[in-house]
Design a protein around this nucleic acid. Sequence first.
RNA 1: GGGCGUUUGGCUCAGGGGUAGAGCACUUCCUUCACACGGAAGGGGUCGCUGGUUCAAAUCCAGCAACGCCCACCA
Length: 902
Amino acid sequence: MYEEMPKTYDPAVAEPEVLDKWLSGNYYGRRPGKGDCTVVIPPPNVTGKLHMGHALDDSIQDAIVREARMRGRSTQWILGTDHAGIATQTKVDKKLKSEGKNRLEMGRETFLDACWDWTHEYGGTIKEQIKRMGCSVDFDNERFTMDDDYAEAVRKVFCDWYHDGLIYRGKRIVNWCPNCTTAISDDEAEYENEHGHLWHLRYPLTEPVNGQDYIVVATTRPETMLGDTGVAVSPKDPEKAAFVGKTVMLPIVNREIPIFSDFHVDAGFGSGFVKVTPAHDPNDYAMGEAHGLEKINIFDEHAIVVDGYGEFSGMTRDECREAVVAWFEEHGLLDHIEDHEHSVMHCYRCDTTLEPWLSEQWFVAVDKLKGPAIEAVTSGRVRFNAERWKQSYLTWMENLKDWCISRQLWWGHRIPVFYCEDCGWEDALMEDTDVCPKCGGHHVHQDENVLDTWFSSQLWTFATQGWPQRPEGLEGHHPTTALVTARDIIALWVARMIMSSEYFLHEEPFHDVVIYPTILAKDGSRMSKSKGNGVDPMDLIDKYGADAMRFNLLSLFTANQDVKFDADIDKRTHEFKGSPRTEQARAFVTKIWNASRFLLMNMEGYEPGEPKAISDADARMFSRLAKQVKAVTEGIETYNFGEMVRNLQAFFWNEVCDWYVEVTKARLKLDDERLQAQRNLIFVLDTSLRLMHPLMPFVTEKIWDAMPASWLDVDPATGEAVRAEALMVAAWPEPEAYTQWIDEPAERAFELMRAVVTDVRSTRARYRISPKEQLRVVVRAHGDDAASAIGQMSGFAASLANASSVEVGLDLEKPEGSIALAGPDFDAYIVVGDLVDFAAERTRIEKAIKKAEKELAGAERTLANPGFVAKAAPEVVEAKRERAADLKAELDALTAQLVDFA
RNA sequence: GGGCGUUUGGCUCAGGGGUAGAGCACUUCCUUCACACGGAAGGGGUCGCUGGUUCAAAUCCAGCAACGCCCACCA
């Protein structure tokens, strides 16, 4: 028992021990149960480390899963990682470069081996970190998006969609990263505002219009003029109407290009003339399509100007821009330059400026997928928490455009489309082939592209559970319970999971989408590597323990869209200095430990038995406990962690430790009450530990190890105590089983006793009377209820207030040399002898009178308002009347007291 | 441009039509046999501004302001 409990709780020692117990006990995997709780972890990048977002995400999920497990549901928290195509390939590229190698020289096969090596080397990190947090994920069933069976699922999805006509190939403008040399999706592109210029260039007209022999176009990207194939004006711009149908002679390349009108053009911007470069701008592409313009690609895959443009060929975008501007200036065609701020797209991986680039890509047609995915949410089959995210999702979904899924990478799921060079046959296949099924030729090759990483992660809820090979694996476990994730991947991931699940399984992938707030740095800025203001969750665990970190993070989880994390980071070294709130959470962990330790020190002679209220102090404690059981259960199941966690802390610290344990100390010394007091205490402690376990699993488990069986462990049929192997698999306190304890009168009675104690304590503080000096206390109750409630607990009051006696009655006289404190329910007289400071008491009473008069005046004004009496709810009116009566009683008492101190 | 969020004591934030809350910080007292990572008692706010709805507004509505986020995007 308590001998096993060291005086101070050291998470660094205890947490690994507890972890061993859980892992060796095999509690993490799925067990049969009543009801299901399946949760998939949002797959972190295989190369990643846990960041604060993950730490919060995983704390929430673990709380959900642990509570469900204790409630007897069949739980599985599926662990897995994502191959993260671009991210991994970029890192492996970098590593190879540092070794003087490059992937083009080594070839695809060797490069993929290098990627696998990298994966194996770094893949374990995140798993260990998740383990260290205490997350009860199923470590024996780990998934990876590049596993063979997962790859088969990805391939099936591709082939099915290909054959169902949802996947097509086309030449489109895509966001091209010239550094990663791949297309990336719109969602992976990031806009950044940049200070640039608006160059006004003169394009000579082939024949003058209204006496003008040139027009001026305005552009932020003069280098793209080499690929211009038209000039557009706004149809709403009457001044430009005369130019429509004319042509200009494009300088440098001497191409005659038409002027036309198109709604894309804003007459008010720039010069009103827009140069149109269909191959290098999405809007221009659309205009080019509409007006049948040629699409001329002037850049290669590295954004170098291609051959055929003389001196400009071979230049980078920046060089070319400079050279083109210089050329225009030289030839007197540079009209003028304006400063101009505009947003520029950057690659989310390498931050290179993206080039809108015309290339052959694979797309998913989303028209057929959208409808069911929208319906899943509008019908309520998928609920967003907080609900406000529902609208973002629907808006995004409604504006969804076809999804570019091909990436010009090597690391990833290769597109399973095969081409015959002999007869032109093409098909998507589940099995590789090198023979053409149509002509029998041997010149068959596979598409070189790989799939967007999100294409594989969209299958996460079902491909991790055996789809399509073992559909029975999903039985009862899909849809999954909840998806807990960050709001920035609602579109990227959540939406696509819903689309694919609806398509292949005709059901939603999860019932609840829980969006947690973004964790910002202390000053409200984003945590980022470049700023060095990020916090490593492992630093928090090192310093405060996993429980403290989890508890603090959960207390931050409200419906807010972001929260500031109070960590101090050294500005120079980026070293983590501390987090006051986490420190406070650790203090709470210590508090739980010490309170438990105290109880276990007093368990001599204990035997398990039924908790019984032998006073209102017990009854009130059990009542508060019952309410807490309900609040915690509902809090977890409705994902209201912030509020629930704060209330639970206040409950345990204030109600259990500060009042109940203190009240009970005296009773542990009484032979005839000791056993029942022990039983009651253990019952309250055991229930509390179970409630706190999903939030702070380590310390609660560790304490539970040292605890004797409580009434919760007693089998009602046999009367035998049967303790579970571990708290994490012990039974949850079910709210219905606790409602019998709710006792409002006892709670009110206890408040009266508490008020007496507080009166004595504040008087003591005011008169600087040593806590060691016993005081005589007389309580004149204002009614039978108060008299009996306080009378019943006067022993407690005496011990808590260190009073020699607490005398309670209806008609007691104020003793000589006493201070009087008036309240609505009783007057308390505290005998301080000749210490009484008449002037000070007068001041205090006058202050109290003023306060009471002010409130009474307000209450009477309200009661005098006919509208209030007529329209307010009857119970509100009644409450107000009672309050007014109480205030009057208090005022009478105060006024009477004032006389004594005249 | 569209959408969203925030604005409450020195700090960080809860709450939410009917007498302003917590933690930290602050003041005073207490090392009494679970805990000083503790206990007790205190001080401190006209809940961003302006209107409106209501018997009653910090709370609901509208407008405004400041700050922040997301989406779209101007060649």
